[in-house]
Design a protein around this nucleic acid. Sequence first.
RNA 1: GCUGGAGUCGUCUAGUGGCAAUGACAAGAGACUGUAAAUCUCUCGCCUUCGGGCUUCGUAGGUUCGAGUCCUACCUCCAGCA
Length: 372
Amino acid sequence: MLKFDIEKKKGFMRVGTIYTPHGDIKTPAFVGAATRSTVKALTMKQMRELGSQSILANTYHLILRPGTDLIKEAGGLAKFSSWHGPTFTDSGGFQIFSLPDVKITEDGVKFKSHIDGRIFEMTPESSMQAQWSIGADIHMAFDHLAKSESREDMEVAMRRTHAWLDRCVAEHHKIKSDAEKQNRPEQYLYAVVQGGTFNDLREESAKYCASKDVDGFGIGGVFTAEGMAEMLKVVNGVLPEDKPRHLLGMGQEPIDLFDGAENGCDTFDCVGPTRMARNGSLYTLDGRINIKNAKFKHEFTPVMAECNCECCKNYTCAYLHHLFKVDEITAKILASIHNEHFVVNVVDKIRESILNDDFEAYRDEFLSRYYK
RNA sequence: GCUGGAGUCGUCUAGUGGCAAUGACAAGAGACUGUAAAUCUCUCGCCUUCGGGCUUCGUAGGUUCGAGUCCUACCUCCAGCA
């Protein structure tokens, strides 16, 4: 069973530590999105230096390339990527359901590779096997994404996610007992809560997930911040306190991180920070800026004076503006360092503020300045 | 000086009688939330009450209902010959 200590609690908020065979995660924590086993534009050294504690890779992408067997052969995701720290994998459900022609049956999903059109099949069982091969510390159950936000579709997705969860749990424990016999390191499974914007469905889903023998929970299917805080209160009011909760895919907007932590989420992952960085959109305490804008041409100050990242400590807006204008890869590297550092740091400060009993003050000060 | 070729939005470019005028780049702005994203969208002659109005294709004339496109002259550039 995944070890998770809670040091401090206040309302739904908690500060804790997740212990994995590859190291500990002090929570709340922002997990870097390393979809294809790398955080785009960043080296693992840079990720460590900017303060990241863990990364999340994607099963769908790694099945296509380089193949899960290869990652197993390499010694697992942490070793293969030279991350050497705690790792998560997402099940691939989210990607597969966003592909153009997907055949869904009760058994699983048939889909075409977006790269070469090869036909793949994924079932709850095969997703578990793939994630064990990849060797991340924490796996997500293979879930069913709704095809629209309608209640009907959400309910279908939720029911199938639950049915698949049973199979994920069974397969996970089967592989786990084999691994134990071979003295291989433990790997852990999170159930994924669905239900969209319908809080009664969310409650039902949370209850279902809570009743299963899993190590933690992913909260999935969140697409907008609207109503998220209320939904999290419902879900985290049901989920057992002593297991960690991961808010899947949210964190592009700092308010998502505050809402998530305040309402009981322990970890977050989001592609937003690095994607926006590559597109020139950078976080500052006063909101996001587009460094490509002409007004930064002569701005010989850091992107964010209060920031300790490699980018802000060494380079000016004018320089970064120039690098983006001439399309140098360093532009994307420095911007990614800054944005990833920013969100990791915000969540670290949320943790600190909870420990210091001044979360509300930090939240109000941060949000009023950022969104003024 | 003669002969041939060429001058179109910041740049290169399409265009051979219906054209505010093609494409690319540059420029300006926006979007991005479990990454098919180093991607995508919009603007890019001037004005606009967004219906439209006005001025444009080296310059000046001309032919034509209509000219970037045809004719004449001139200017500039390139190539060849003197």
